[in-house]
Amino acid sequence: MSLTHVETVPRWRRIGLWSLKVLLAAVFFAAGGAKLAGVPMMVESFEHLGLGQWFRYVTGTLEVIGAVMILLPAFAAFGGALLATIMVGAILAHLFAIPGSPIPAIVLFALSGLIVFAHRDQIESLTRRIFDDHD
């Protein structure tokens, strides 16, 4: 006999999570779009890094991809992980290379981490499929 455990998430939690995902997607889509569009402030920031403007394009592209991913239910955890990883780089850049406060990047890192945590079942499922298939 099989029992299926169905968890019902309270409506307020679903609304709160979707609100966070939409807000975060808008922020990263705007930031990634600014990088891809060559907004002078972004060009200057990446010039300070000294890695070349190609890195601005890569970062902007990854931010836009991450923004889209967090809005797709099947990829939300992976999009959150991608964005959190980008924010680790942004925090380090602000601490060591670019003038300005790392606080916005820290906040975006934490919010991206919340997305990963809320959708951790996706990562657990993928991990289980990868490692259970090889036993």
Score class of each variant (00 low, 15 high):
Leu83Asn: 01
Leu111Met: 11
Arg14Ala: 11
Ala74Arg: 15
Arg129Val: 08
Ala34Ile: 03
Ala81Pro: 01
Leu83Phe: 06
Gly32Glu: 05
Phe28Asn: 03
Val27Asp: 00
Phe29Tyr: 09
Leu83Pro: 02
Pro104Arg: 04
Leu114Cys: 13
Leu23Val: 10
Trp54Val: 08
Arg56Asn: 05
Val43Gly: 03
Leu17Gln: 08
Gly89Leu: 02
Leu36Arg: 05
Ala110Met: 09
Val107Ala: 12
Leu111Thr: 10
Val22Leu: 14
Phe131Gly: 07
Ile86Leu: 15
Ile123Lys: 06
Phe96Pro: 00
Ala76Asp: 05
His134Cys: 07
Thr61Ala: 11
Gly66Pro: 01
Thr4Val: 15
His119Phe: 09
Val88Thr: 01
Ile70His: 07
Ile115Leu: 09
Arg56Cys: 07
Leu36Glu: 00
His48Arg: 08
Phe28Gly: 07
Leu49Arg: 13
Gly50Tyr: 05
Ala76Lys: 09
Arg11Tyr: 11
Phe55Ser: 12
Gly113Val: 09
Gly100His: 00
Ala25Met: 07
Thr85Ser: 15
Ala30Leu: 10
Asp133Gln: 13
Leu108Pro: 02
Thr59Tyr: 08
Ile130His: 01
Thr4Asn: 14
Leu62Cys: 05
Gly113His: 08
Asp121Glu: 15
Ala110Ile: 15
Pro104Ile: 02
Val39Ile: 09
Phe46Val: 06
Val58Ser: 07
Ile86Asn: 06
Ser101Trp: 04
Ser101Cys: 03
Phe55Pro: 01
His5Met: 12
Glu7Arg: 15
Ile86Ala: 06
Leu24Glu: 03
Gly66His: 02
Ser45Arg: 09
Thr8Gly: 04
Thr59Cys: 12
Met1Phe: 13
Ala84Val: 03
Ala67Trp: 00
Pro102His: 03
